[in-house]
């Protein structure tokens, strides 16, 4: 199939990369998200809430650095693929995912309050998902690339299944507030994470149906939503508060206690 039937963007740096527009916007959104979470979390004293803030600030923090490295072309390389010629691969994207996806899952695992073995298993399969995707991205034949993509996608399905079953059951036991927040976040993750392998397979690293500009734009939208949007939903919920800052009792409950 002919590659790059769709292109979009604007070459901000004058180095022949129109996708720099989307990488620049991605950097700005990630920075805004990072500073918003820092300001929101400043002075938080609740023990459990602090843990969520620590994780959720670091996720867009590292993503902004990854987007900046891609913007300046540091996080970019070329890979020769048989029958496709030379492909531009933004490898910093994968390094970013290796760091951020385990932390996003840790947020969900802490919310569901599952044991450390479950957290380790979840993060282990997640790492497998990203590493196999990495191998695919650096492979030189289409067959190898699609095979590793399939492995990575299967690992992603296992992660999502684990979230939708075991962790969901655990979250349900923690009360309606946690259950509601967990379900919202899991739905967000299920939809957004499923879009990644689809975009990969139609993008320049897969079949090449869409060009690098559109691919970068869509990855940026997915990344910002999956990191900043995820954090926004999580940190505005009272589910992250520990017992010490549980919701205040209603007037009726307070007077009854008196």
């Amino acid at each position: 199939m002919d590659p790059t039937v769709l292109q979009a963007g604007y070459d901000l740096l004058g180095d022949g990369r129109p996708e720099t527009l989307w990488l620049g916007i991605g950097t700005i959104f990630m920075l805004i998200g990072t500073f918003y979470f820092i300001v929101k979390g400043w002075g938080v004293t609740d023990k459990e809430a602090r843990e969520y803030y620590a994780i959720t600030i670091l996720v867009p923090g590292i993503a902004s650095a990854a987007y900046l490295s891609m913007f300046f072309g540091v996080g970019l390389t070329e890979v020769e693929v048989v029958g496709r010629g030379t492909l531009d691969i933004y490898y910093a994207r994968y390094a970013d995912w290796l760091f951020t996806t385990p932390l996003l899952l840790l947020d969900l695992a802490l919310l569901a309050k599952v044991d450390r073995v479950s957290i380790g298993t979840l993060i282990g399969v997640d790492a497998l998902m990203i590493v196999t995707g990495l191998i695919g991205a650096l492979s030189h034949t289409p067959l190898a690339r699609y095979t590793w993509w399939l492995f990575s996608t299967i690992a992603m399905i296992v992660v999502l299944y684990f979230l939708a079953t075991s962790l969901r059951s655990a979250a349900k036991e923690r009360g309606p507030e946690v259950e509601s927040t967990f379900n919202t976040l899991t739905a967000l993750v299920l939809v957004l994470w499923t879009a990644y392998p689809i975009l990969w397979i139609v993008g320049t690293e897969g079949a090449g149906v869409v060009g690098l500009g559109v691919e970068t734009l869509l990855f940026m939208v997915l990344d910002v939503t999956a990191k900043v949007g995820f954090g926004f939903v999580l940190l505005r919920s009272r589910a992250i508060l520990g017992d010490t800052e549980a919701p205040e009792p209603s007037a009726g409950e307070a007077s009854a206690a008196d």
Partner: peptide, 28 residues
Amino acid sequence: GFDTAFWIISAVELVAALGIAYFVINLH
């Protein structure tokens, strides 16, 4: 080469993420 350097970088990212997970769990 690129591949070796890339895997070193990736390993550092993963170890950093695991380190953060460990330290957050033991934040208090």
